[in-house]
Measured scan of single mutants.
Amino acid sequence: DLSALRVEEVQNVINAMQKILECPICLELIKEPVSTKCDHIFCKFCMLKLLNQKKGPSQCPLCKNDITKRSLQESTRFSQLVEELLKIICAFQLDTGLEYANSYNFAKKENNSPEHLKDEVSIIQSMGYRNRAKRLLQSEPENPSLQETSLSVQLSNLGTVRTLRTKQRIQPQRTSVYIELGSDSSEDTVNKATYCSVGDQELLQITPQGTRDEISLDSAKKAACEFSETDVTNTEHHQPSNNDLNTTEKRAAERHPEKYQGSSVSNLHVEPCGTNTHASSLQHENSSLLLTKDRMNVEKAEF
């Protein structure tokens, strides 16, 4: 173990290094160091905050020279020094078990990766560091076993998940096959086929009936047209017969005018059967003409 005197000496050296690497504005270890034209180094955030307070150039807090945003430059070497100082402080805390008085939040800088452990060898070769390295080497064999167990647990979990997924996939297939086998029997399929065939026959029977009705309507229309044509021909046949009657009536009127007047009046009210309204109107006109002729003949006879 380190003596108290040596611990104090190391602590004083760390404090001196820390004062050199402090920012003059925030009085902390410089984060993202930036250098000016006057070779003074500050935190990048502190300098941008200072420049944004005034429009135009501002003055350096140490030498009062003008500073602009374009004049600022990043210093990589200074950032490396800060990183190495942080590593020294971490090693000091691990070796002594004491917390550094002016320690900052170094938890963000710590890294437990194997590459980081290899890099620590180049920091300080001390008894405390050696003991700590031995402890780490002793704890390393235990870690692979834990990793193997965790991997086995994960693989077993994956296997159970896969088996569950396969079961879920197989179950719908089985149910679907069961439904297909038990849903419709052979008799049901035959009945469905016969039902479809009967429906098709009914459709075939319905369509000819409609065509037959249309044919019957067409035949009825044709018969009505033929009947009207026969009526017209009958009226045409009746007209010459009426003319013959008129000639006979004229002759009778010349011989017996008194008797014919009474008979002509009675004939006005008689309509021949089986004739249309057109034929009756023609008869009325003929009878009126005959009456006028008879009157003329009677007057001539009187004179």
Rank of each mutant, 00 (worst) to 15 (best):
L21F: 07
E271D: 03
R295G: 14
F106S: 14
L203M: 04
S156A: 13
T292N: 02
T149I: 02
C63Y: 15
C273G: 01
A101S: 13
L2V: 15
Q171K: 02
I206N: 07
S288I: 13
V265A: 03
Q73P: 10
R162S: 07
K300R: 00
A301T: 08
L289F: 02
P208L: 00
D294E: 15
R6H: 11
E285D: 06
Q138R: 04
G128C: 13
K55I: 03
S152T: 02
N157K: 11
F106C: 02
V161E: 09
A193V: 00
Q147R: 08
C60Y: 15
Q201R: 02
L72R: 12
K44I: 05
T76A: 03
S139T: 09
Q80R: 13
K64Q: 13
A220V: 01
F227C: 11
T160N: 14
E120K: 10
L136F: 06
A253S: 01
H116N: 00
M296I: 07
I88L: 14
C23F: 14
L155R: 01
E187G: 02
Q80L: 01
Q154E: 05
Q261R: 07
S113C: 14
K37R: 04
G128D: 08
N297I: 14
N143Y: 02
Q125K: 06
G56R: 10
R130S: 13
R295T: 01
K87I: 00
P144H: 03
K64M: 01
V13D: 03
N65T: 12
T189I: 08
I123T: 07
L27P: 12
M127T: 02
K222N: 03
S3Y: 09
A193S: 12
G210R: 07
E8G: 07
R70S: 09
L268F: 02
Q59R: 05
C43Y: 15
L51H: 13
I88N: 13
E74G: 14
K54E: 04
T68A: 02
E249Q: 06
N191S: 05
N143I: 12
R6G: 09
A16S: 09
L217V: 03
K49E: 03
E148A: 15
L51I: 08
A279V: 08
C26Y: 15
N15T: 08
T36K: 13
T166K: 14
I30N: 06
E28A: 10
S266T: 01
Q18L: 10
L94H: 15
A253T: 10
Q168R: 13
N131K: 08
Q261H: 03
I30L: 09
V34I: 09
P208T: 00
P240S: 05
R295S: 04
E32D: 04
A224G: 15
K108N: 12
Q80E: 05
S156C: 07
M17R: 15
S139C: 05
E9V: 04
N276S: 01
T235I: 01
H40P: 15
C196Y: 00
S145F: 02
F78V: 03
C273Y: 08
E258K: 04
R165W: 02
F45I: 05
K134Q: 10
N52K: 08
R130K: 04
I67K: 11
P272R: 02
E249K: 14
E22G: 07
D39E: 05
I67M: 07
R165K: 09
P57S: 06
L164Q: 12
L151R: 12
G159R: 12
Y260N: 07
C63S: 14
S75N: 10
A224V: 09
P141L: 14
A252V: 06
F227L: 09
D188V: 15
S156P: 14
C38F: 15
S35Y: 07
S103N: 06
S79I: 13
S176F: 00
C90G: 04
D218H: 07
E140V: 05
L50F: 10
I89T: 02
K69N: 06
T277N: 06
E229D: 02
T36A: 02
S197G: 13
L85R: 12
Y100H: 04
L98M: 08
A101T: 02
R255W: 01
L146M: 07
N157S: 14
N246S: 13
L137R: 11
P33S: 12
L203W: 00
K69I: 00
Q201K: 05
N111I: 04
S139R: 11
H40L: 10
E229G: 00
P257Q: 13
P208S: 14
E74V: 01
K222R: 07
C63R: 15
L158P: 13
V7D: 05
I88F: 13
D95E: 12
V7A: 13
C273S: 15
T247A: 02
N143K: 09
L29M: 15
N52Y: 01
T36I: 08
A91V: 14
A101V: 03
L98S: 03
